[in-house]
Design a protein around this nucleic acid. Sequence first.
DNA 1: AAGAGTCACAACCGCCGGGGG
DNA 2: ACCCCCGGCGGTTGTGACTCT
Length: 345
Amino acid sequence: MGRLPSSEEIGLKKGPWTPEEDRLLVDYIREHGHGSWRALPSLAGLNRCGKSCRLRWTNYLRPDIKRGKFSDEEEQTIINLHAVLGNKWSSIASHLPGRTDNEIKNFWNTHLRKKLLQMGIDPVTHKPRTDHLNVLASLPQLLAAANFNNLMSNHPLDINALRLQSDATTLAKLHLLHNMLQALGNPATTIEAMNLISGPTFRENQLFDELPRINSLLEANTGNLPFGGFAPHEVTKFQLNFINLEASQQHQPQLSEHQQQPMKDSSFAADIPTSSTPQLPALISASPEHRLSVIENKINPNEISNPSSTSTNFEAWGDLMDDVANDYYWRDIIDQASPQSWPIS
DNA sequence: AAGAGTCACAACCGCCGGGGG
DNA sequence: ACCCCCGGCGGTTGTGACTCT
């Protein structure tokens, strides 16, 4: 229990500070220094408690306070420091000149925490969340989790992040296929294509043979293959991922344990070829076809040529994935790919 | 245009630890 | 050893601004 208010503190003003109160406080401290905060209010002519004066000064009126938006560098510093220090806002603030602990705390609670959650990162442990076993449903989180490794530039390479990136890239394409077919509004085609993907045929090693059919279904409906269609190696990879996913879902504790133990087995890391771990934004920008420009523009036309801007890419992917949930988004893409093929309704 | 809902942030609250008497 | 004061900290709340319907 804290100290009870003394009799003098009863009836003191609370709430927002007026410009006049600010002026009184600043003038007094400039002339005399703050000295004893408890004694300051009466000396400065303020009807406030000392604590309120101290907070107002340290969090708002101090001349060396830097106000305004947090830069990308500051944002990254906060995330990195929080991963190490936890909610030690004053310690974090000591590494960010001009920023107060209160400001950083607010920024964390209103922006960064949500951002990490949206990316599928636990804001407490700074590790990928393990409660997202429905991979397709949680694709945005998966994508972001995979890319989180880029943001944490001071952290060692996390093999789980690489794997997630790889999985997410392939899954993203299948997710795109699913949504494009749905947006085409042809139930028969959608069902046929998705049966190929998710039905028993898919799981029984015949998927490879079905690949031309999947691609031709898309071509027939859009006039173009999305992202150049699906390459055989991607299908194989998805097949493996699918099997792994099923196994993971049947043995959830093993998955959780695996996901929480980054980089224990270095030989495993060596088995992952670089070519199978594409960067997600490259999934889009690396393809030369004009149809991709639709998505590129949605991500951010200014950032495509600037791969170093990781946090912006994050936001872009977040925005993209928000749009992905919307049918108009898919119609947009399909319209761009093949305007004639869209039925007038 | 207006009401509802959401967001961002300043300010407050309760607790803790250090220091002095 | 105990009590009290003070400053600092992290968590929470209140409210104005903004957005959506």
